[in-house]
Write a protein that binds this DNA or RNA. Sequence first.
DNA 1: ATGGATTTGTCCGTATGTATG
DNA 2: TCATACATACGGACAAATCCA
Lengths: 473, 473
Amino acid sequence: MLLTPGWEANSNEPQYAQLYAYLKKEIAEGKLPENTRLPSVRKLADLLGLSTTPVEMAYQQLLAEGFITSRPRSGYYVEHLPEPEAKPLASQSAAAAVIERPLLRDSRQYEYDFHMSRNDFSLFPYVEWRRLYNQTLVLEQQDDLFFGDPQGEPGLRKQIARYLHQYRGVDCSPNQVVVGSDQFGMLSLLSLILKPEYPQIAVENPGYLLFARTFTHHGFEVKPVPLEYDGIDIGELHRSGARLAVVSPSHQYPRGMIMPISKRLQLLDWAKTVDGYILEDDYDGEFRYHGRPIPSLQGLLPKANVIYMGSFAQVVAPALCIWYMVLPESLLDRYYALVSETLLEQSASRLHQRTLETFMEKGLLEKHLRKMRSLYRKKHDESIRAVHEHFGDRAVLYGKDAGFHLLLRVDSPYTEQEMRELAIQAKVRISPASFTWIQPPAETHKEFFLGFAGIPLEKIEPGIRALAAAWLH
Amino acid sequence: MLLTPGWEANSNEPQYAQLYAYLKKEIAEGKLPENTRLPSVRKLADLLGLSTTPVEMAYQQLLAEGFITSRPRSGYYVEHLPEPEAKPLASQSAAAAVIERPLLRDSRQYEYDFHMSRNDFSLFPYVEWRRLYNQTLVLEQQDDLFFGDPQGEPGLRKQIARYLHQYRGVDCSPNQVVVGSDQFGMLSLLSLILKPEYPQIAVENPGYLLFARTFTHHGFEVKPVPLEYDGIDIGELHRSGARLAVVSPSHQYPRGMIMPISKRLQLLDWAKTVDGYILEDDYDGEFRYHGRPIPSLQGLLPKANVIYMGSFAQVVAPALCIWYMVLPESLLDRYYALVSETLLEQSASRLHQRTLETFMEKGLLEKHLRKMRSLYRKKHDESIRAVHEHFGDRAVLYGKDAGFHLLLRVDSPYTEQEMRELAIQAKVRISPASFTWIQPPAETHKEFFLGFAGIPLEKIEPGIRALAAAWLH
DNA sequence: ATGGATTTGTCCGTATGTATG
DNA sequence: TCATACATACGGACAAATCCA
């Protein structure tokens, strides 16, 4: 059996490995049937002109994987394999059939990119961040390479609590802050905590689809609640029967309205009444361009039934993958129970957490935030100016003075689909807002997201001019 | 009303902010009731000895937050606030009641730390990693700061596919590889994909509790299936009725057995028969100390119904937070559907992904892995030697030759609880294995995890000597 | 049936070429 | 450049199983 030529030739592979592979194949293909006794180590070594070691190593490996058994001082015997000939073992070099993944990101080349959630990284503090990261990753602090606090680094949570208090009026202690790497993960956590007691959740319609979709997938019954001019319809919210609600009070997505204080109090009152919770989505709360930031809903009343959620994606960079939420004290017990039951580990890199902590501690975040706000304000103002100049009274803008996009309602003779194609022809990247409806109304307007954060300042005016030329007639 | 003294004194706060805060407080406390007309901008500015600008800014801010409304050419009027006196607004400096979190990590000081899943970072390639990270984070590659591919960076996925093929015998293309930041997140993803069709899941008993617990929380019915001497009981698996199973074939957790090839084939056959999936947990597959690594179950047969899961936590460091799984092609459609429906973003830092990609590309991972394997082998061998020396025939070791821990079964006159306390008194950190039972059997042995990876080599022998002295009599 | 010779798995010390630092 | 470490391969030693006169 073993004198098959050719297996000794390629000498870059060690002998024992070649012998192992050969025997494995013979057994798998049934050429060496069950209970066959293999030649003894010495015999085979002699036969092959080798020492016993490589033969022994090959046998040991087959033994570890269960192809053969050893009866000491008797011999090695082939094990029983179920249905050997029906199932050839996979060749190591089998070429996997290539399945093409669907196109998830639009990678076409545009001259003017008004995509709604792009960032401008020209002002990113590269030097400082590299320096702080390098200071974090040193031999003397080996522990930072290990698993950290599942809730997030204590020092970072302290900084976040301080920052949120100062910039967003959030009222919390560091042990209410939970750090994570992404929104999906945090929502999964929340789902596991809340689902048993709160199987329904109300969302704004129109609103950020991620919430509706993610909670649906987690088994919640999602109740779309219509917006009024000043935010979610509290009456409808009561009638929905839900005891959970996701809202974006500081700058509603997508329509950009600020929820007035009276409605905020009604909303908090609703949560108390139904003994439920509000999930406050504060994705762009720091970015308000005229006047001070709108303080968060969370800090409006003490012990409010609010879960506050935010991230450093916009303030620093998405690639850090650091998100946070602030849990009300009434949910902490359930959170800790989940952590210990599921052996949950922190998902945001400890190195980045520690780097960010120092970054904040040294006041660099405030400094960077000021620069970014100023840059985005310029782009915001220029966008509005350019729309007025080129669209005149053929367009209305919603959601001004904050965030990273404007909502542009256009009076155009074309359909939305036609407008999309015309924009592409004009090399302008811009998304319609129609997809933000969970339940579309009978009549929709032609509305588009004009994202101004990612596009260079000097391209705003020509981009909008190109859009107006394409759409108006 | 406005001549309240004291509000002008502290001049580090801008005037408009002071005015805004003062008016907000007055309104919230009901001292300025609904529909009260505020003084006009000019009047108030005169009264306070200010220009109109700060007054107007304060009014604009109150307006934006909905405390007041503007009637053009008439004046600003206080809005209706529900139940004002019943709910005082939260003081900005309210001291939140401090809820103590439960002690999740044992932080006592031990002389000998045999905790099962610690790492040794003395050989971490600090210099190389810093260098590669710094090369990744540069102005010229701004895009790396933005959101990346939700599935993981294509370059990294390519490297992972290559690496898994070479080191673990995994047979896949890069588009079957899904990157994530943590195990919980990946399991959440899988749960959403699989739960509708596969509401039950079988787990090894004893086994890694994380799986049982996490899937239970995600609404699965978890079926514990007993182990045989060579791995999960296939007959019981059939009888469980489940069509999903989590197994660790290369090095079972916690008992360390290697699933032999015949059982592997039976297991794959089971998956085909019930048209289900095996989740292969390969948490330490790279670390085999004598002989070659055991190839993965995933690559044993072409197109096997196996989801393979691994991470860089052990090979590089947990703090990177980079995990991966390899999906069978039959699940790719469902995965992509979920990604686009829930607007899923990648949770592992793009900067770390890119750094790791280069790290692998340059062959540094292989190099580092060799070093780590060698280091851990020394500790592994020394642990076995020391146990033989100090325990003699009073202890048996399971799960040798691989991974990061040994299972130590001790013949001791003490109960498990007494042994735990004796270990602590001897300044030894060691965990019992009893908690790995999902359903504990009638009779359990006194078994402990002897984690050897994290403890310094020279502390192994004295640590085990101390243990033997404490436990034996 | 038996005792000695042989065969066998297993263990161990050593040598060599290559890669590493 | 040189010293070291490592994977691989070699040959021998031991004791138990097997075989045979």
